[in-house]
Design a protein around this nucleic acid. Structure first.
Length: 187
DNA sequence: CTTTGGATCGTCT
DNA sequence: GACGATCCAAAGG
């Protein structure tokens, strides 16, 4: 957390993430092994794993861990830093700055990240994660991950306390999707 | 501010 | 064939 996601003029500070531990984590896309979709998660750390969900949204993860071990961190929210005009252009419906990157599918939209960026090298590519000297929050806030049904008790969502761009209120008061329902907001 | 329900299609079973 | 690591508009307070 607090690293920068950079693409051209667009810069955002990572203020909310979720951890996904491939083989040991039933909520991970990699839990049931390698598939064409999740292959990037099994590769080298520092690459982008991008997936499509709900028939219309893209979400982006930073691949972590040793080559061959699938684990990743979902980017859930950014604080917009530079290039806000371009972000607004990509998200015409955003009324306030906090609407630009305050959710996993919002930030990919603001940064124009789609299938094209799946597997991108974040160390030297078009999309980059950079360290400008701001360390992680101490202490960081944490709670259950959003929108999953399995392993929902694990507190593997992390965020910067008090940041207005965090995708859900820090109260942790969000609805959990009952088993069997579909397509509704996990909120 | 909160609650509700619709949109929409790739992916894996 | 079922469902999802979501977002948004609409409506009520």
């Amino acid at each position: 957390m607090n690293k920068l996601l950079i693409r051209g003029e667009r810069v955002g500070r990572i203020v909310e993430v979720e951890a996904y531990r491939g083989a040991e984590d039933p909520a991970s896309h990699a839990f049931r092994g390698r598939t064409p979709r999740n292959q990037v998660m099994f590769g080298e750390a520092g690459h982008l794993y991008v997936y499509f969900t709900y028939g219309m949204h893209w979400c982006a993860n930073v691949v972590c861990g040793p080559d061959g071990v699938a684990s990743a961190v979902l980017l859930r929210a950014l604080a917009p830093v530079e290039g806000l005009a371009l972000m607004r252009q990509a998200r015409p419906g955003a009324r306030k700055d906090r609407d630009l990157c305050s959710g996993p599918a919002k930030l990919t939209q603001a940064f124009g990240i789609t299938r094209e960026e799946d597997g991108a090298d974040l160390m030297k590519g078009d999309v980059v994660v950079a360290d400008d000297g701001v360390g992680p929050p101490r202490p960081a806030a944490r709670g259950p991950r959003v929108g999953i049904s399995l392993a929902a008790e694990e507190a593997w969502r992390w965020w910067v306390p008090g940041d207005v761009n965090v995708s859900r209120a820090e109260t942790g008061l969000y609805r959990r999707r009952p088993p069997g329902t579909r397509g509704k907001d996990g909120g």
